[in-house]
Design a protein around this nucleic acid. Structure first.
Lengths: 340, 340
DNA sequence: ATTGACTCCCAAAACGTTTTGGTTTATACT
DNA sequence: AGTATAAACCAAAACGTTTTGGGAGTCAAT
């Protein structure tokens, strides 16, 4: 069953030196003679020696592994966000010599077990957190035991921790300004559950930005979706059934925005003229859709990469000067709002 | 930095027994008196003992970890397939007590290093392979060293290995029959690079199925995409520019099919009437699209789950009676082919 | 009094690595 | 001749677990 089982001991026997010397030779210590080092390296290559990572980890008391728990919603779970983010952390981690331990978990009580278990059994050195909640038990837990982690997103709790976040309020302000400038006064919002920090921020951001234009965002114009296309589709039905429907719909992510467009098109509305639609994320489809989707671009891949890099630096004991990174997103204006 | 560091030794000291006895008590051996066992369990719970997984692994010489390498294409990589598949293996793995080590890697020379490295340094006990190639160096390598793995998809090589696959030729036959029955004679195909086993099978399957209807699939009617929406979009431009364009376009996945629809719509064609479009995968969007997409449904989540389960059984030394599972997909008829 | 069976326990080895705290030998300096 | 200094090496401990191969004590049957 096993390919390779060469150990330091095997090398030591071949070269007639001790295990200590072999180990030190391979690690570049300077108390090994050049000839010995050469010989050791040669024999190691010859018999195909690869260090046993598990033994190294036991001795170092670290795992060089980063934990990443993907919160899933139901079995038909698919969100472009996660593959792109995963690619970002994955490609960075491999460069820095770290492994990624991924697990998937519905948001639930048990979710915490997943974290606790990984911490307590020394499976990972640190975590990357995503989809932060306003009241986030994961963050509370990790803070309380002082376990290293970096989050994509903030929380409302008081404990300080390193994170990368996108300026959601700024994004909503850009959207509001753009829509108002195009003449819209009746604007609706399809958000996500309010316990999600980013959903809350986007809603509050939109409210505030509209207020600056002396516009109100009444509760009837705020719907809660679940970030899937189909929920965008359904919430739009409700909004468009109003006697006085909105002329613009802003959504919490592109997937839902695509749903909005479909419902509107089914009703014969012309997107960009009868109804303006704005998404959030700038997934690849936003650009190719018909009509193409005006949206907020967040560099997900890059954020994954930054988050991973920060975590590794923390794990290596570096002092992080900039623990709280806030990224300004950009508004990508396309066809779905018309007025071009 | 660390929460918990209780070891067997700590328990042993508290209860005044040896480490051996404590270990055996916790593992349910019957050479421990009931009182001792009770006491050990109580103390363990009290001081919050969790076994050090790394030490266990070193001693057991196994990692209880499954490797999964996601082949990525460029940084804007996002494919709904992978999140759903990952959720399938992830949720199954956690139930069976296995970890998943995910890494992302472009298809390249180095990709093999990623596998070799994980094998040689004892990082994983087995692999799950996906997107198999007709000539697959990963499979050759793992077979040659007799390392456990299960694949989603087959290969053309001769070495036998356990896999789950979808009957691609059967799927294409269903599509061909359906289209021919609707009266189509000029059918085009937008595939994926031919080195991918599933792309090859689907193309060959379509050719063969058409031949049974005395229809030809000329090379001009076969385009190669890269599974992204935008490539579906572009290849369709070419097909529709022909003086004698196809009346139906079959694609290798739904993302490309969505691209086909967009290009056709931009040109003012009515999908389902002027042009029939068929996808493959049945991603959630296929159902919600306007028009909804006729496609082949593959139970990706379930396949992930089965593959994971098979691998774990192999790792545990079970004899697998059914090493080659072939799943019959279903044709989901929706609006994009019309004729309903 | 011995034997055998049974119950309960444990010291030590093993997994493969890195690190600690040396020793030995040769060379150079007083 | 004695003493530093440096170069090259290594035995043993440590990381925390599981397993091996026993041992000691009790009780009942011979």
């Amino acid at each position: 069953m096993q390919a390779n089982t060469a150990t330091l001991k095997d090398i030591a026997e071949k070269v007639g030196k001790s295990i200590t010397t072999v180990s030190r030779a391979l690690h570049g210590y300077d108390d090994v003679s050049p000839e010995t080092r050469m010989l050791v390296e040669q024999v190691a290559a010859e018999i195909g020696y690869t260090p046993n990572i598990i033994a190294q980890r036991l001795q170092k008391k670290s795992t060089d592994t980063i934990g990443f728990v993907i919160p899933t919603y139901g079995p038909r779970f698919t969100d472009p966000f996660f593959t792109e983010f995963l690619a970002g952390i994955g490609n960075t981690a491999v460069k820095l010599g770290y492994d990624i331990l991924v697990s998937t978990h519905p948001i639930s009580e048990e979710e915490m077990h997943s974290y606790q278990n990984k911490v307590q059994s020394y499976r990972v050195d640190g975590f990357i957190l995503v989809r932060t909640r306003r009241d986030d038990s994961r963050i509370k837990y990790l803070c309380s035991i002082n376990f290293p982690f970096v989050a994509f997103g903030r929380t409302e709790g008081s404990c300080p921790f390193p994170f990368v976040d996108v300026d959601n309020r700024y994004a909503m302000k850009m959207i509001a300004d753009h829509l108002v400038q195009l003449g819209h006064r009746k604007i609706a919002f399809i958000g996500a559950p309010d316990y999600l920090m980013f959903a809350h921020e986007r809603l509050e951001g939109l409210k505030q930005a509209l207020k600056e234009h002396d516009l109100d965002l009444p509760n009837t114009m705020v719907k809660v979706g679940d970030l899937t296309q189909i929920s965008g589709l359904k919430q739009t039905e409700i909004l468009l059934d109003y006697p006085d429907p909105p002329t613009a719909i802003v959504t919490c992510n592109d997937l839902m925005a695509l749903g909005v467009i479909i419902t509107a098109q089914k009703r014969g509305l012309r997107i960009g003229e009868d109804l303006a639609v704005v998404g959030y994320d700038d997934i690849p489809q936003a650009e190719n859709n018909l009509p193409s989707l005006t949206t907020i671009h967040q560099p997900i891949y890059k954020i994954g990469s930054i988050v991973c890099d920060m975590l590794v630096r923390i794990l290596k004991g570096d002092v992080i000067e900039d623990q709280k990174i806030i990224i300004k997103p950009t508004l990508i204006i396309r066809e779905s709002c018309g007025g071009q």
